[in-house]
Amino acid sequence: MDRKIRVLVAKPGLDGHDRGAKVIARALRDAGMEVVYTGLRQTPEQIVQAAIQEDADVIALSILSGAHNHLFPRVMELLSEKGVNDVLVIGGGVIPEDDIPFLKKAGIAEIFGPGTPTKATIDFIRANLKR
């Protein structure tokens, strides 16, 4: 058996570019993970459906627009509505320190801001997989 870690990298909201998401996707790929990338401007509903269909172990949300306090908890809400509780959800992008406790309370396992070494994200995923 060769269990591979599958990560859905998703960009909720109306961001205009996805350079950061692509950098993290590439880093996870180079760490031996299978990364499904869904592209820009996804709704939380689309992200959750994609994660279910792809049987993702991890959802990595990236956002720049400032709508994280609305969109991240919405993803968590939809996951729990669907009875999905074994997916690790992490976030990144431009997120003020002050918002982090709220997001963690909503169920986002960790937030990785600008300048986080990609290794930190990779190690976090490996250590915190839920299945």
Binding site: K4, R29, V35, Y37, A50
Partner: peptide, 29 residues
């Protein structure tokens, strides 16, 4: 898949996300 790390970027879905909410469609990379 990468022949070196075994990792992969699965990007075909980007073009197909308009069907994500349609229950008559299942997409897997």
């Amino acid at each position: 898949s990468s022949p070196f790390t075994g990792g992969a970027i699965l990007g075909d879905r980007i073009r197909m996300q308009s069907h994500a909410l349609d229950e008559g469609v299942y997409i897997r990379s």
